[in-house]
Simulated scan of single mutants.
Amino acid sequence: MNWISNYMKPKINSIFSRRETPDNLWSKCTECGTMLFHRELTENMNVCTNCNHHMHISPRDRVTALFDGGIFTEFDAKEPVTDPLKFKDQKRYTDRIKAAQRKTGEDDAMLLAEGEMGRTKVVVAAQDFGFMGGSMGMAVGNAIIAACEQAVKRKCPLILFSAAGGARMQEGILSLMQMPRTTVALQMLKEANLPFIVVLTHPTTGGVTASYAMLGDVHIAEPNALIGFAGARVIEQTIREKLPEGFQRAEYLLDHGMLDRVTHRKDMREELITIVRLLMKQTPAIKGDLPAPNPAEQKATAKDAKA
């Protein structure tokens, strides 16, 4: 037995050999190129710690950070007809849906949830850009209708997080029909005097911007989010003029009266709690886990103390 080759050489090689680093430990910021450790990025809600760029975040992670204690209940919308046009391009539409479901772990591009936010009941609909570009098809239309019905049933506000590249081309005219369908559905909230708050995230474009994403009572956007209907290049070619810097970005739209707020993702929960309680004519929320005091209970306690 040669102890040098059989024992010492493998030992030395194990010490000096290069150790492979798992690919999922680091993420690269798409804006500044900084390499970000995955745990640090998750704790910062997928916002770059170097340049403050708001990266993609899944609807499930978003609503978990939004609700009190991360507790919420999902509810389903009516399931639409799968592949009504039997559409096929490079792949069959059904195969694209299955691939998107495997990638995201969701049934379609909209997650519906209800729970408490600052001890106030809310219904939340969050769009997933990772699911076929967050495209608006019949499933998304059904989800918004279900969210409106649930909000009316619970007598609470509806908060919608939009993120989409537009209508889903594989469903043709049926996807475009979701624009008037969702507009009519939102009328239910208006008739019930319930707030509809829209948070526009990067990107929100196409038919989504031309329908439910711009019909809110309050419009909030994340920093530097792309928001518009047609693409900037298409607009430039049509009007034959150079567009101003920052055109279709959240800050530009805020300056021109299209938005009410541009809010950092880490401040979004507190901002929404304040707005929701204000629109529902409730007392301001108390910082911490306790609900706002009930004025009637305060007066009763004061009377008992005097007695």
Rank of each mutant, 00 (worst) to 15 (best):
T34D: 13
T82G: 09
P195V: 08
R277T: 01
F247D: 11
L36T: 06
D260C: 05
K91M: 11
R233S: 13
I97E: 11
T30H: 08
E297S: 08
E116L: 15
R240C: 12
A100N: 06
K88E: 14
L36D: 05
T183E: 08
R119P: 02
Q187V: 04
V140T: 12
I220R: 08
E191W: 00
A65Y: 08
R240Y: 07
G206S: 07
I145V: 13
P157V: 00
D304G: 03
A151T: 11
M138H: 04
N6F: 11
D61Y: 05
A210R: 12
I15M: 13
R19H: 11
L158M: 00
S5L: 06
F131L: 08
G172W: 03
I220A: 15
L174A: 07
K28R: 14
G257H: 09
D68E: 13
S162D: 04
F67V: 11
M169R: 15
G206P: 06
R96W: 06
P195C: 07
D289M: 11
H56K: 05
Y7V: 14
T204F: 08
L243D: 05
D107H: 14
E270L: 11
T82F: 07
G246H: 09
K91N: 09
M55L: 09
F72N: 14
Y252T: 07
E236N: 01
E149C: 00
I286P: 01
D255I: 02
H54W: 08
P291S: 03
K103H: 15
D61C: 06
N44V: 01
F72I: 12
E271T: 15
A232T: 14
N50W: 07
L259A: 04
N44M: 02
N13K: 15
G257M: 10
S175A: 14
L272H: 02
P284E: 04
R92P: 00
N52L: 15
G69Q: 03
R269D: 10
E271P: 02
S211T: 04
V81R: 14
K190S: 14
T34W: 09
D76A: 12
A230T: 06
I4F: 09
L259E: 09
D128G: 00
V140K: 06
A163E: 13
E245I: 07
G69P: 08
C32D: 06
K153R: 06
L160M: 07
T30D: 12
F75W: 10
A77F: 12
Y93P: 00
T205W: 05
L160A: 11
E106G: 08
A307N: 15
N50K: 13
T94C: 05
N294V: 11
T209M: 15
A126F: 04
F129Y: 14
L189Q: 05
A213T: 02
G207E: 09
H256V: 02
T301M: 15
E149W: 02
I145E: 13
G228A: 04
G105F: 04
A147W: 06
F161R: 00
D68C: 03
R168D: 09
N24P: 02
A164K: 01
G105E: 07
L243A: 03
L200P: 01
P195T: 05
A305Y: 09
K28H: 04
L36S: 05
N142T: 00
A300P: 03
M280L: 02
T30M: 08
G33C: 10
R19K: 15
V199A: 07
H202E: 13
K28I: 10
I144G: 04
R168T: 02
L259K: 01
